[in-house]
Design a protein around this nucleic acid. Structure first.
Lengths: 222, 222
DNA sequence: AATCGTCTTCAGGCTGGCTTTAGGCGGACT
DNA sequence: AGTCCGCCTAAAGCCAGCCTGAAGACGATT
């Protein structure tokens, strides 16, 4: 079971290397992002443990580049903060799992076992709907060659629709995905954002890809 | 993909239920620990989402009891605090994964997918009647290559007929399926919608796939 | 402190789907 | 043939649901 550990803190890297080695992993260590990317590209690992805060190239970028190069090795990201946003960001750039520092060794082991059991599955990172490309890693999207900047909330709504392109997504579902669960404001806010999105991704292009299905929700189509 | 959700916060439970249902999960909900344990024992679920803080019996106990009874259904625990200790404790009692509240919907979904070990999503399948394709997820249908947009009610009626293609479906049955139980208006409304459907899916194509069976109901055929 | 951008609320206006109504058609039975 | 009954469909009113501009709240940045 070959593993690549990309971690710049020497102390932590050594501890993990010795611990995991005794669990049966053959561990290679890279100490910065660029080395990590290079090693991951050159060798076939069974799993990659990737710190987010790295010199020379951060973890998100390394992850995104690997996925862009169609490398689907399971990746577990180590996020420094424990904000929900970081977690989602990690998963969106194509990571298979993440762990917030500080973490316990037992937990890391359990997660690694789960990942290696599963094997890597192909999962494209950016979502394409017709000529509209949605880039979860960059919180932005493109219509053809034109780049469109979106606010986080706008993006969350668009993302929710794009993940299920061609299907009707209800307002309630969009609320649940783009707002946190404790939100209990006016559901009308979804309409407001739909309106804003149309003004950005449809109207300027004379399109109408964001369709209202009265009494049911919205649908994003090519 | 059958799922048991054990969660006492009604609002959260409802949000999750509707969201996950649209992802292809058949969700049962239990509102306290004892009910959850009972339901998990009686039915064969593919995955269990288990809150830790529950009335009548906490999540750790439920989890431990299930494992003691040799029930190995994958369990994802929802821990309230985010201390490492709780996470380890969750894994120790036999949970397969955990998530700290508050969590994001996206993350939950990714974890559930991992647990059920199924890359693709179980999506509602589209029904085909001759060259007429009915797409429940998108609330629309296609005759050959031509896309036809339907209102929710029109779709509900067509869906009711398509699910039993070739059979006669009575007006009463259509009423029961497309209208809610408390509806006590004119049954003639079914005829109105049949008429509308014919104008959309038959007349423009010179077909007559929607047949009236006098005194019995309607039949959709290829 | 001031400015900017984002999130959220609110309210007015409007669209379009739902339902009812009513007149007409045609098959079935006497 | 005549009559009855079930079905068809066009038309119109109603109203829920949706759209959108404006403005306040809030936080981030300078």
């Amino acid at each position: 079971m070959r593993m690549l550990l990309v971690e710049d803190e020497k102390r932590l890297a050594d501890l993990l290397r010795s611990g995991l080695a005794s669990e049966g992993f053959a561990v290679d260590v890279a100490h910065d992002g660029r080395d990590g990317l290079w090693m991951a590209s050159e060798n076939a690992y069974d799993v990659i443990v990737l710190d987010v805060m790295l010199p020379r190239m951060n973890g998100y970028t390394v992850c995104a580049r690997l996925r862009a190069a169609e490398n689907w090795t399971p990746i577990l990201m180590l996020t420094a903060k424990d904000g929900v946003h970081d977690e989602a960001e990690a998963l969106d750039t194509g990571a298979d799992d993440f762990l917030s520092k500080p973490f316990s060794y037992v937990v890391l082991l359990a997660r690694l076992r789960a990942l290696t059991r599963r094997g890597g599955g192909a999962r494209p990172v950016s979502i394409v709907v017709g000529d509209l490309a949605i880039d979860p890693a960059g919180l932005r999207c493109r219509r053809g060659e034109v780049e469109i900047s979106l606010t986080p909330k706008e993006f969350a709504v668009l993302h929710g629709l794009a993940r299920r392109q061609g299907e009707v997504v209800s307002k309630g579902e969009l609320l649940a995905q783009a707002w946190d669960f404790s939100y209990d404001g006016d559901p009308n806010i979804v309409e407001v954002y739909i309106s804003a999105l149309r003004r950005k991704i449809d109207s300027p292009f004379g399109r109408s890809s964001l369709v209202t299905v009265r009494g049911a929700g919205y649908r994003l189509e090519a």
